[in-house]
Amino acid sequence: MNTALRKTVTPWLFTLPAIACILVILVFPVLSGVRLSFFEYAMRDFAVGRDPVFIGLDNFRILFGSANFRTSIQVTLVFVSSVVIFELLLGLVLALLMEGGIKGLRLFRTLFILPIMIAPVVVGLIWRFMYHPSFGILNYFLLRLGLEPIPWLHSTEWALRSVIIADIWQWTPFVFLILLAGLQGVSRDLIEAGIMDGCSYLQNLFFVKLPAIASIIAVAAILRLIDAFRSLVVIYVMTYGGPGVSTEVLSLHLYKTAFMAQRLGRASAIAVILLAILLLLSSVLVVRTLRAERK
């Protein structure tokens, strides 16, 4: 092979397997899913080999008219906003507590990774066990404290809160890790200067530290927003969306529409809506990262 040809072909040989995988297994399916959202297609059509029928925007029209879908949107918004707000606040508090010269920091930091690494199925199971109405540990503690037991996963009033608590348990450590790394990057001089000028801890926090890590807080928020919109498995295991549809977040609604109601076209329409939300959120990240790469 001549050298010039080799020079142009070799880079492609290295990148080709990755490009092929991404195109065939990610990009093509996502696009064909978008296409399917304009079709009427049931699992049974698929089973007997019937072709999808084009119905334009009917899937979307039906969705927006459906009470279950609107409830699901509402549940998702409550879930996502609650977990992100609590996780940011708690994560920030933990990061501030551990920042700077704490003995045993490494050990604590290591322990805090565990909930992030454990399989969502396992997290769902553990919490389901702890929430159990009769032999769950949480109600036992409540009784010992002289309080009324709570029907954690068994009342429409409490189920969503319980699911939110489990998510906060699992993902606060993630926010904590990012914010701790951010705080450790804040220049010592800046903080020392503040102390020299007689700033109190709170003044230092609000006028020096928080502004210095503002962009990292924003990234943590977006990463958590994206993941919270995607979250499905823990809820699937704990409540399967119930009681009723009180914990049926959008991704679970999608899954049930596809594999329980077996409406593949309509489920694809939900997928398109979910995808649009996630694209919007990740575009913020993309812009920010591209700006950083240019530097």
Partner: peptide
């Protein structure tokens, strides 16, 4: 950011 649940049908 593509979630598994979006890939699952296609």
């Amino acid at each position: 950011m593509i979630p598994e649940v979006i890939l699952v049908i296609p």
